[in-house]
Design a protein around this nucleic acid. Structure first.
Lengths: 211, 211
DNA sequence: GTCTATATACGGATAGAC
DNA sequence: GTCTATCCGTATATAGAC
């Protein structure tokens, strides 16, 4: 579960951020010590504190990496070969499922984990988390806009995009706790049912008397 | 945000668990030190370790309290005066909203926070978290069963109950991160729309040609 | 069962030479 | 920019008298 060793062609600062990103994702922020990061990155204390005054600054840098990686590292791989915008949303969810499955339901969404681990994060950290959520939601919103003609006219597109994130995060939380994909899958299935109902026009007023 | 002082008529062990419950909820498990708990409970180190060999044993006891409190502390207050089973589900969600609102969106669901804070919890802790989720889901499932005749016959009741938990936890996570009720409210609104659609029979096959 | 005092480890962060 | 050595606070847990 650890990459062969963060590419040694990078600068020390970059290696430290990448190592921190991996360890924060694996063990969380609080349980990752600066000493862990230094050891795994093959760096020394002085180098880290030269680039990052505090451990928290390192966290903010990691969250920036996640943000910048949403498009190339998350969306692009998930969407190749999938054309339908709504199916792209479910392909995104499937990528989280793969991650859960590949790790025995121990790793889900690193942003969500950090968001709940840090109860009272300092403003820059909280903002960086919020920016990550916003970026994710905006990507889903874009897919919904592309499928707008298949959704009821009065649909709140932004709220529906947030709802997709909600379903992903809630499902990941339960699957990690139960160490089973069942809860995540159940959530996706229900969400799919909802999308199907959204795309099915309701009975017209004068047709209700037929049933 | 702190009770006037955990009732001094209780045994020391009980006072310690109640204090730990409060502090774990406020600051998380990792950020609450044993010294914090001792100070706030007005107890000494020896008393704690006499009753609980480790801090983790204290956590398991706290999770047991949460489990036992679902019915009397959570459901009963939320459901008084609400008769409709589906409205009881939304009343339960409203109780989480109240908690978010009362705390400036800093406290949501203590179980969910712990579930994501503890990345690789020891088996007894993970089980205790899972038991809490199960108890919550079963309560919602009971309400859905009471409303079964208003839902499509093929509805997976258990999965739908899990979905309600998913929506609550995902909404709480985002609202805490954004420090705004908007995301939570949006999730509840979308969920309500879904329930309405579930309760609206779809067009019969031979009526589709009318539209 | 409760008290005080303390063992022991590890945390983040720093100093100052090179 | 990177190195080694280390400061200093706080963490969980324990010892042993009462």
């Amino acid at each position: 579960m650890k990459t062969q060793r963060e590419n040694s062609r990078l600068t020390t600062a970059d290696r430290l951020v990448l190592t921190a990103m991996r360890l924060f994702g694996e063990k969380g922020y609080g349980s990752t010590s600066v000493a862990d990061i230094l050891r795994e990155a093959g760096a020394n204390s002085g180098s880290l504190y030269h680039a990052f005054p505090t451990k928290q600054d390192l966290l903010v840098a990691v969250l920036g990496l996640y943000r910048d990686g949403i498009e190339p590292m998350l969306l692009e791989p998930a969407w190749t070969g999938v054309d339908d915008p709504i199916e792209q949303i479910f392909a995104l969810l499937a990528s989280y499922r793969s991650r859960l499955e590949a790790t025995g339901c121990t790793y889900g969404c690193p942003i969500g984990s950090l968001a709940l681990e840090l109860h009272e994060p300092d403003p820059p950290v909280r903002e960086a988390l919020a920016v990550n959520f916003d970026g994710w939601v905006s990507a889903v919103e874009g897919r919904l806009l592309a499928a707008r003609d298949r959704l009821p006219a009065q649909t709140d597109i932004r709220a529906l995009a947030q709802f997709v994130l909600t379903v992903m995060e809630g499902g990941v939380m339960q699957s990690r706790t139960h160490r089973s994909l069942q809860a995540f899958d159940a959530g996706v299935t229900v969400l799919r049912d909802y999308f199907q109902r959204l795309q099915t026009p309701p009975p017209t007023p004068d047709s209700t008397e037929r049933s």
